[in-house]
């Protein structure tokens, strides 16, 4: 593989990623003010500030953790795109990990950088297309999508995703998976209110899994 080519590709990816992220950021923060102009009423900055202190700080911490944990998984291109397009835990991360495994790319390699970028870009475009079609067809689609018979299916998209992923990743790594699965189950059984903070519980569960994996890695190397 041509290392110089990859380095210049990566350099350019950072330039494009930074510029496009900055433009999207300005657009997203500017949109409420533009909408305010259309509606004839600007945002109440004081109320937004108070609400930020009540919920925003939690999400800020979560964003920092997501950045630190997921950026190495996604690489440069995938990282910029994933943080622009969102839906990380329920779609982008499993999607990129799945593509990486199907192709057989290793974390930190140029191949992983390419596959991850392709995966996140494709996933984002599919969501944009599905949502655009859905919004265009909102009236005829609404009875189908909101039919009471189909509700259990759509309420269980995430369990369906993690069930499939669990089999795929647990089967070869039961030694790593057993402890986090047992510890998390016990925690959620003893403190049921934690279900509202599942996305935060990923951090201790991930740390435990990484710790165990490191122990086995060291043992194998010894």
């Amino acid at each position: 593989m041509n290392n110089n080519y990859f380095e210049s590709y990566n350099k350019r990816t950072h330039v494009i990623g930074r510029i496009s992220s900055a433009i999207v950021l300005v657009m997203l923060v500017g949109a409420p003010f533009l909408i305010g102009k259309v509606l004839g009423a600007m945002p109440d900055i004081g109320a937004a500030g108070k609400a930020f202190l009540s919920v925003g700080l939690v999400w800020t911490v979560s964003s920092v953790v997501e950045f630190l944990v997921y950026t190495p998984m996604l690489g440069a291109g995938g990282g910029y795109l994933a943080f622009i397009t969102g839906n990380l835990i329920n779609m982008k991360i499993p999607c990129a990990v799945n593509a990486r495994d199907i192709v057989g790319a290793k974390t930190g390699t140029p191949e992983n950088e390419i596959v991850s970028t392709l995966s996140i870009a494709t996933s984002s475009l599919v969501t944009i297309i599905v949502l655009a079609l859905g919004v265009a067809l909102l009236v005829p689609l609404q009875p189908v999508l909101q039919s009471p018979t189909l509700q259990p299916a759509f309420e269980n998209v995430v369990p369906a995703l993690f069930g499939a992923m669990a089999y795929k990743y647990f089967r070869g790594n039961m030694k790593i998976a057993a402890a986090p699965l047992i510890v998390m189950s016990i925690l959620f059984i003893l403190v049921p209110s934690l279900t509202g903070s599942t996305s935060f519980m990923i951090i201790p569960a991930g740390a435990l899994a990484i710790g165990i994996a490191y122990k086995f890695y060291k043992k194998a190397g010894a």
């Binding site: 998984m73 369990p159 993690f162 059984i189 049921p192 899994a209």
Partner: peptide, 20 residues
Amino acid sequence: TAMTAMFIGLVSAYIGSYIG
């Protein structure tokens, strides 16, 4: 290995929440 382990942790947290 660390990335796979992190992902296993993620899935474990969700399945643990369903069991709980």
